[in-house]
Amino acid sequence: MSAFIRVEDAVKTFGDPSPGTGARQSERHSERNAVRALDGVSLGVDKAEVVLIIGPSGSGKSTLLRAINRLEKLDSGQIWIGDDLVTARRADLRHIREDAGMVFQSFNLFAHMSILENVSLAPRIVRKVPAVEAREAARVILERVGLADKLDRFPRQLSGGQQQRAAIARALAMNPKALLFDEPTSALDPEMIKEVLDVMTGLADDGMTMLVVSHEMGFARAAAHRVIFMDQGKIVEQGSPDDIFAHPHEQRTRDFIRHIL
């Protein structure tokens, strides 16, 4: 129970019109149509641990990540970040999301703002940092991800790799205790993947707690402490990168690894 992020028996069903409607007819109906995105997932992530989640599409990887900072509400189960119960009915969402930053597949930078404004906005209006300080801090973070010369550019003026690095900077600006990456390199051209992975590896080396949904073997080898294989809403197998990629036990894992390599 000492893990920093704890997920206990998480269940999430999509396509179920109204859970708890009494009629047997509708129950059977919903069971047929509903997709169990998370089917009893339990997981602990220690401080400074880097965990990679792999699995076929629809296996619930993204749903798990999104449930951890409450972009998705669980049907049942509990999630803790440190001492905060994320799944509490009256959870302090602001506090939770400050603690667990998120990086998306499609970057999702604010299109009407410069990169500097993108990074300094949330510290200013959520954490009430004075504008001058927030911009100064943003400048330092953007320098760290190699975008010191792009401060005044707009997202559309940057390459995909640069946009994703800016998005990582934006998440970092809130001083999160953990970062969640949802397929951060899947929308990138091959030649831009490395620059993003280098930033992520740097963060891992600095001791950031990271939960990464990705199939990047390079990153797995360089930075991941643990790899989790998910399928059909369940954790099938987990272990060190070497265990999972070279010597998987489960047949399903073996089949999947063969496909992505």
């Binding site: 999702n108 959520v126 998440a171």
Partner: peptide
């Protein structure tokens, strides 16, 4: 307005009102 940007704003801890005023309405 791109839904992804709204999610990103929520993920940064912004409230729905802040997201509307700072992210959605300007665009």
């Amino acid at each position: 307005v791109d839904k992804g940007q709204i999610e990103a704003a929520y993920a940064l801890g912004m409230s729905p009102t802040q997201t509307m005023i700072r992210v959605v309405l300007p665009q």
